[in-house]
């Protein structure tokens, strides 16, 4: 059993690296874009809010697998041909932007309205009020769900095999068909995913505690 793992170990490691890379970029892009969308959603004008609403509604209502498929194989019909890696990143980010938008929205809306009114009374315009007062508090509220999101992202990367990105699950299938040792490889994959995700949630708990410290 360990022979198989030893000879395929390097390939599995490579696949893991792609999984982690894809997850990190998705988390960053999704987090930032989701934040921007949430701003529109909470403070924006009606037509923009409607557009963001529609986008979030559609993206959350369809399985990620189908979204990946449409964006990779459907966009060329409209003239947009994405190569595999940027395409995978773009699609995952778009999906998680919608999810993150909801989380940021919840955080922003959970802040007492009085704060914004008080800021306005002091003569602050919205951007300043956001930067100094609201966003730092929203970040604290978002820390917990953000960690859950990170774990979800890592697990969802297994779906990008549909567009041919050599992340961990796809590499695993390729190795199984070469070596015909499904149990060992699947076991290794399970352990790797668990380690990454469990590590992330521990890290998240530590960050959450640090962020809550000093917050009544």
């Amino acid at each position: 059993m360990f022979d198989t793992l030893r000879e395929s170990g390097w390939l599995l490691l490579e696949g893991t690296m792609w999984t982690i890379l894809l997850s990190l970029v998705t988390l960053l892009l999704g987090g930032v874009m989701g934040f921007l969308l949430a701003l529109i959603r909470v403070y924006g004008v009606w037509p923009l809010r409607a557009v963001v609403d529609a986008y979030v509604y559609v993206v959350r209502g369809i399985p990620l697998l189908l979204l990946l498929f449409f964006m990779y194989y459907g966009l060329p019909y409209m003239g947009i041909d994405l190569p595999t890696l940027p395409g995978g990143i773009a699609v995952m980010s778009l999906y998680f932007t919608a999810l993150m938008c909801e989380i940021w929205r919840g955080a922003l809306q959970s802040l007492p309205r009085g704060q914004l009114e008080a800021a306005r009374a002091l003569g602050m315009r919205l951007p300043l009020a956001l930067t100094i007062i609201l966003v730092p508090q929203a970040v604290r509220a978002v820390a917990g769900p953000l960690v859950n999101m990170a774990v979800l992202i890592v697990k969802s990367t297994s779906l990008v095999s549909i567009i041919g990105l050599s992340e961990l699950t796809m590499v695993g299938h390729e190795i199984i068909e070469r070596t015909f040792k499904p149990f060992e490889i699947l076991g290794a994959i399970a352990v790797i995913y668990f380690s990454i995700c469990y590590g992330l949630s521990r890290l998240g708990k530590a960050i959450e505690e640090k962020v809550q410290y000093g917050n009544p």
């Binding site: 699947l186 668990f194 469990y198 949630s201």
Partner: peptide, 18 residues
Amino acid sequence: IEITRNVPLLIIVYLAYF
């Protein structure tokens, strides 16, 4: 809770079936 949350659903399905 930690084990079932941090393993992809696909792996759990494989384990349950195979």
